[in-house]
Amino acid sequence: MAHADVDDLAALVIEPADVPDPVRRHVGACSRCSATVEALTATRGALGADPLVAPPPDLRARVMAEALGRPTAAATETGTAETPSAPVPLASRRRGVPVWLASAAAVLALVAGLGVGRMSVGEPEAAPVEPEPTGSVLAATSLTALDSDAPRGAVEAVNDADDVVTVSVRATELGDEPGFHEVWLINVDGERMVALGILARSDNGTFEVPRRLIEEGYRIVDISVEPDDGDPTHSGVSLARGELV
Protein backbone atom coordinates (compact mmCIF):
# COMPACT_ATOMS: atom_id res chain seq x y z
CA MET A 1 0.00 0.00 0.00
CA ALA A 2 0.99 3.61 -0.29
CA HIS A 3 2.54 5.31 2.73
CA ALA A 4 0.18 5.92 5.59
CA ASP A 5 -1.45 9.29 6.03
CA VAL A 6 0.47 11.30 8.60
CA ASP A 7 -2.75 11.98 10.51
CA ASP A 8 -3.21 8.23 10.89
CA LEU A 9 0.33 7.96 12.14
CA ALA A 10 -0.40 10.73 14.63
CA ALA A 11 -3.48 8.78 15.73
CA LEU A 12 -1.26 5.77 16.25
CA VAL A 13 0.73 7.82 18.73
CA ILE A 14 -2.26 9.43 20.42
CA GLU A 15 -4.80 6.62 20.47
CA PRO A 16 -3.67 3.42 18.76
CA ALA A 17 -7.09 1.85 19.09
CA ASP A 18 -8.44 4.34 16.56
CA VAL A 19 -6.10 3.15 13.85
CA PRO A 20 -7.25 0.50 11.38
CA ASP A 21 -5.25 -2.70 11.18
CA PRO A 22 -3.96 -2.22 7.61
CA VAL A 23 -2.26 1.00 8.64
CA ARG A 24 -0.61 -0.71 11.56
CA ARG A 25 0.56 -3.57 9.40
CA HIS A 26 1.98 -1.11 6.90
CA VAL A 27 3.84 0.82 9.57
CA GLY A 28 5.30 -2.41 10.88
CA ALA A 29 6.72 -3.15 7.44
CA CYS A 30 7.65 0.36 6.27
CA SER A 31 10.80 1.98 7.60
CA ARG A 32 9.77 5.46 6.47
CA CYS A 33 6.39 5.37 8.19
CA SER A 34 7.80 3.80 11.32
CA ALA A 35 10.43 6.55 11.42
CA THR A 36 7.64 9.12 11.22
CA VAL A 37 5.84 7.40 14.08
CA GLU A 38 9.03 7.54 16.07
CA ALA A 39 9.38 11.26 15.40
CA LEU A 40 5.74 11.86 16.29
CA THR A 41 6.26 9.94 19.50
CA ALA A 42 9.21 12.18 20.32
CA THR A 43 7.05 15.20 19.58
CA ARG A 44 4.40 13.79 21.89
CA GLY A 45 7.11 13.52 24.52
CA ALA A 46 7.96 17.19 24.10
CA LEU A 47 4.45 18.24 25.09
CA GLY A 48 3.65 19.36 28.59
CA ALA A 49 6.21 22.10 29.18
CA ASP A 50 5.16 24.88 31.50
CA PRO A 51 4.16 28.15 29.89
CA LEU A 52 7.02 30.30 28.67
CA VAL A 53 8.26 32.93 31.09
CA ALA A 54 8.52 36.41 29.66
CA PRO A 55 11.55 38.44 30.68
CA PRO A 56 10.90 41.62 32.70
CA PRO A 57 9.55 44.46 30.54
CA ASP A 58 12.58 46.69 30.97
CA LEU A 59 14.87 44.14 29.35
CA ARG A 60 13.61 45.09 25.92
CA ALA A 61 14.93 48.63 26.22
CA ARG A 62 18.29 47.33 27.44
CA VAL A 63 18.54 44.96 24.49
CA MET A 64 17.61 47.65 21.99
CA ALA A 65 20.03 50.11 23.57
CA GLU A 66 22.94 47.72 23.55
CA ALA A 67 22.27 46.24 20.12
CA LEU A 68 21.69 49.56 18.44
CA GLY A 69 24.51 51.25 20.30
CA ARG A 70 22.46 53.83 22.07
CA PRO A 71 23.20 54.90 25.57
CA THR A 72 20.35 54.43 27.94
CA ALA A 73 19.94 55.48 31.49
CA ALA A 74 18.27 52.16 32.16
CA ALA A 75 21.40 50.20 31.33
CA THR A 76 22.51 50.04 34.89
CA GLU A 77 24.26 47.20 36.57
CA THR A 78 21.44 46.08 38.77
CA GLY A 79 18.06 45.33 37.37
CA THR A 80 15.69 48.00 38.48
CA ALA A 81 12.60 46.05 37.70
CA GLU A 82 10.21 48.45 39.31
CA THR A 83 11.22 51.61 37.54
CA PRO A 84 10.30 51.85 33.90
CA SER A 85 13.27 52.34 31.67
CA ALA A 86 14.22 55.96 31.45
CA PRO A 87 13.49 57.60 28.12
CA VAL A 88 16.46 57.73 25.84
CA PRO A 89 17.73 61.24 25.29
CA LEU A 90 16.67 62.53 21.94
CA ALA A 91 20.14 63.20 20.65
CA SER A 92 21.03 59.55 20.95
CA ARG A 93 17.72 58.53 19.52
CA ARG A 94 18.21 60.32 16.28
CA ARG A 95 19.67 57.25 14.69
CA GLY A 96 16.48 55.54 15.62
CA VAL A 97 14.20 58.01 13.99
CA PRO A 98 12.40 55.89 11.45
CA VAL A 99 13.67 55.99 7.90
CA TRP A 100 10.20 56.96 6.85
CA LEU A 101 10.74 60.38 8.30
CA ALA A 102 10.59 62.41 5.18
CA SER A 103 13.96 64.11 5.08
CA ALA A 104 17.02 65.01 7.03
CA ALA A 105 15.51 68.43 7.45
CA ALA A 106 12.53 66.85 9.10
CA VAL A 107 14.84 65.06 11.49
CA LEU A 108 16.53 68.28 12.46
CA ALA A 109 13.17 69.92 12.76
CA LEU A 110 12.07 67.15 15.05
CA VAL A 111 14.95 67.78 17.38
CA ALA A 112 14.49 71.51 17.42
CA GLY A 113 10.75 71.35 17.66
CA LEU A 114 10.70 68.94 20.51
CA GLY A 115 13.07 71.05 22.50
CA VAL A 116 10.69 73.91 22.13
CA GLY A 117 7.70 71.75 22.83
CA ARG A 118 9.26 70.72 26.05
CA MET A 119 9.81 74.26 27.16
CA SER A 120 6.39 75.44 26.25
CA VAL A 121 4.52 76.17 29.39
CA GLY A 122 1.06 74.87 29.84
CA GLU A 123 -1.51 76.07 32.25
CA PRO A 124 -0.80 74.52 35.59
CA GLU A 125 -3.56 72.52 37.14
CA ALA A 126 -5.54 74.61 39.54
CA ALA A 127 -5.84 72.00 42.23
CA PRO A 128 -5.09 68.34 41.69
CA VAL A 129 -8.11 67.05 43.53
CA GLU A 130 -9.71 63.75 42.58
CA PRO A 131 -12.08 63.41 40.96
CA GLU A 132 -11.53 66.33 38.66
CA PRO A 133 -14.70 68.29 38.06
CA THR A 134 -16.19 68.14 34.63
CA GLY A 135 -15.09 71.05 32.51
CA SER A 136 -11.81 71.64 34.28
CA VAL A 137 -8.66 71.91 32.22
CA LEU A 138 -6.67 68.73 32.67
CA ALA A 139 -3.70 69.83 30.61
CA ALA A 140 -2.76 72.25 27.89
CA THR A 141 0.08 73.15 25.62
CA SER A 142 1.01 75.56 22.94
CA LEU A 143 1.90 74.12 19.58
CA THR A 144 5.05 75.08 17.77
CA ALA A 145 6.60 74.30 14.44
CA LEU A 146 9.32 71.72 14.46
CA ASP A 147 11.96 73.67 12.54
CA SER A 148 11.56 76.82 14.59
CA ASP A 149 9.72 77.93 17.66
CA ALA A 150 7.14 79.64 15.53
CA PRO A 151 3.75 79.32 17.20
CA ARG A 152 1.30 76.94 15.60
CA GLY A 153 -1.67 77.30 17.90
CA ALA A 154 -2.66 75.58 21.12
CA VAL A 155 -4.27 72.48 22.53
CA GLU A 156 -6.39 72.12 25.58
CA ALA A 157 -7.47 68.90 27.25
CA VAL A 158 -10.64 69.34 29.27
CA ASN A 159 -12.13 66.83 31.67
CA ASP A 160 -15.43 65.52 30.51
CA ALA A 161 -17.82 63.10 32.16
CA ASP A 162 -17.08 59.37 32.43
CA ASP A 163 -13.30 59.62 32.36
CA VAL A 164 -13.34 61.13 28.93
CA VAL A 165 -11.07 64.00 28.04
CA THR A 166 -11.95 66.38 25.26
CA VAL A 167 -8.88 67.48 23.37
CA SER A 168 -9.44 70.74 21.53
CA VAL A 169 -6.92 71.56 18.86
CA ARG A 170 -6.73 75.11 17.54
CA ALA A 171 -3.87 75.12 15.10
CA THR A 172 -2.63 78.00 13.01
CA GLU A 173 -0.39 78.45 10.00
CA LEU A 174 -0.03 74.80 9.15
CA GLY A 175 0.94 75.69 5.58
CA ASP A 176 -0.30 74.64 2.17
CA GLU A 177 1.48 71.36 1.75
CA PRO A 178 -0.90 69.06 -0.12
CA GLY A 179 -2.63 66.43 1.97
CA PHE A 180 -4.80 66.47 5.03
CA HIS A 181 -3.87 67.30 8.57
CA GLU A 182 -4.06 64.48 11.05
CA VAL A 183 -3.77 64.74 14.82
CA TRP A 184 -1.83 62.14 16.80
CA LEU A 185 -1.04 61.52 20.42
CA ILE A 186 2.47 60.21 20.90
CA ASN A 187 3.32 58.45 24.10
CA VAL A 188 6.22 59.95 26.00
CA ASP A 189 7.79 56.49 25.96
CA GLY A 190 8.52 57.07 22.30
CA GLU A 191 7.14 53.62 21.46
CA ARG A 192 3.46 54.15 20.96
CA MET A 193 1.16 56.52 19.22
CA VAL A 194 -2.50 56.76 18.44
CA ALA A 195 -4.29 58.69 15.71
CA LEU A 196 -7.00 61.01 16.96
CA GLY A 197 -8.38 62.04 13.61
CA ILE A 198 -8.35 64.56 10.86
CA LEU A 199 -8.64 68.30 11.17
CA ALA A 200 -11.56 68.64 8.84
CA ARG A 201 -12.88 72.03 9.82
CA SER A 202 -10.07 74.41 8.94
CA ASP A 203 -7.32 73.76 11.45
CA ASN A 204 -9.53 73.26 14.45
CA GLY A 205 -10.79 70.00 15.80
CA THR A 206 -12.15 68.42 18.94
CA PHE A 207 -11.42 64.84 19.84
CA GLU A 208 -12.65 62.71 22.68
CA VAL A 209 -9.99 60.61 24.33
CA PRO A 210 -10.22 58.15 27.21
CA ARG A 211 -8.60 59.85 30.15
CA ARG A 212 -6.58 56.69 30.73
CA LEU A 213 -4.62 57.33 27.54
CA ILE A 214 -3.40 60.70 28.74
CA GLU A 215 -2.52 59.21 32.09
CA GLU A 216 -0.59 56.46 30.34
CA GLY A 217 1.66 59.05 28.75
CA TYR A 218 -0.03 59.81 25.45
CA ARG A 219 0.63 63.48 25.95
CA ILE A 220 2.54 64.70 22.92
CA VAL A 221 0.13 66.25 20.47
CA ASP A 222 1.41 65.99 16.93
CA ILE A 223 -0.12 67.28 13.73
CA SER A 224 1.07 65.64 10.54
CA VAL A 225 0.37 66.24 6.91
CA GLU A 226 -0.83 63.03 5.32
CA PRO A 227 -0.85 62.25 1.63
CA ASP A 228 -3.90 60.38 0.42
CA ASP A 229 -1.92 57.23 -0.22
CA GLY A 230 -3.95 54.67 1.66
CA ASP A 231 -1.25 54.21 4.26
CA PRO A 232 -2.89 54.63 7.66
CA THR A 233 0.36 55.26 9.49
CA HIS A 234 2.05 58.56 10.23
CA SER A 235 3.62 60.12 7.15
CA GLY A 236 6.61 61.23 9.13
CA VAL A 237 6.03 64.86 8.26
CA SER A 238 5.05 66.72 11.40
CA LEU A 239 3.85 70.28 11.15
CA ALA A 240 3.33 71.11 14.80
CA ARG A 241 3.87 69.64 18.19
CA GLY A 242 3.39 70.27 21.85
CA GLU A 243 3.32 68.25 25.01
CA LEU A 244 0.30 68.36 27.26
CA VAL A 245 1.32 69.33 30.74
Binding site: A86, P87, V88, P89, L90, R93, R94, G96, V97, P98, W100, L101, L110, L114, G115, G117, R118, I186, N187, V188, D189, G190, E191, R192, M193, I220, D222, G230, P232, T233, H234, G236, S238, E243, V245
Partner: peptide
Protein backbone atom coordinates in the same frame (compact mmCIF):
# COMPACT_ATOMS: atom_id res chain seq x y z
CA UNK B 1 10.57 65.24 31.29
CA UNK B 2 12.62 63.91 28.46
CA UNK B 3 11.57 64.50 24.92
CA UNK B 4 11.11 61.69 22.50
CA UNK B 5 11.06 61.16 18.80
CA UNK B 6 8.35 59.57 16.77
CA UNK B 7 7.74 55.96 17.62
CA UNK B 8 9.36 53.53 15.28
CA UNK B 9 6.99 51.54 13.15
CA UNK B 10 6.99 48.30 15.06
CA UNK B 11 3.45 47.13 14.80
CA UNK B 12 2.31 44.82 12.07
CA UNK B 13 1.08 46.73 9.11
CA UNK B 14 -1.97 46.09 7.04
CA UNK B 15 -0.81 43.53 4.56
CA UNK B 16 -3.19 44.42 1.80
CA UNK B 17 -4.40 47.63 0.32
Amino acid sequence: MTVVGLPARTRPRYGVA
